[in-house]
């Protein structure tokens, strides 16, 4: 596996910490972790997640981006767009 691919397997630690905090979820996270695994990740908790991301990374997402986030990997992709 190339170093880049290896790196892609691990979730950014700051995002992992935030996700674990918001959903009170202790198991390890991968990029494909989604509401399928995280039971608490319902539509209202999703709003809390967005709020936490906006507070911590000092960004403001659009509604489309809110809806685009369907798994942990999506979070990284959206944040990358903001350069944070």
């Amino acid at each position: 596996m190339s170093p880049a691919a290896l790196q892609a397997e691990t979730v950014r630690p700051d995002i992992a910490e935030l996700v674990a905090d918001v959903f009170q979820y202790d198991s390890p996270l991968t990029h494909t972790t989604s509401p399928n695994e995280i039971e608490r990740w319902d539509s209202l908790k999703h709003i809390e997640l967005i709020k936490a991301l906006e507070d911590d990374f000092e960004i403001s997402m659009t509604m489309d981006e809110m809806m685009e986030i369907r798994c942990v990997g999506d979070i990284e992709r959206v944040l990358e767009r903001y350069g944070v």
């Binding site: 700051d14 995002i15 910490e17 935030l18 507070d55 911590d56 990374f57 000092e58 350069g83 944070v84």
Partner: peptide
């Protein structure tokens, strides 16, 4: 403090 962490290596 995650925001700050990345801001440190960001534009400034």
């Amino acid at each position: 403090m995650a925001g700050k962490a990345s801001a440190a290596t960001g534009p400034p």
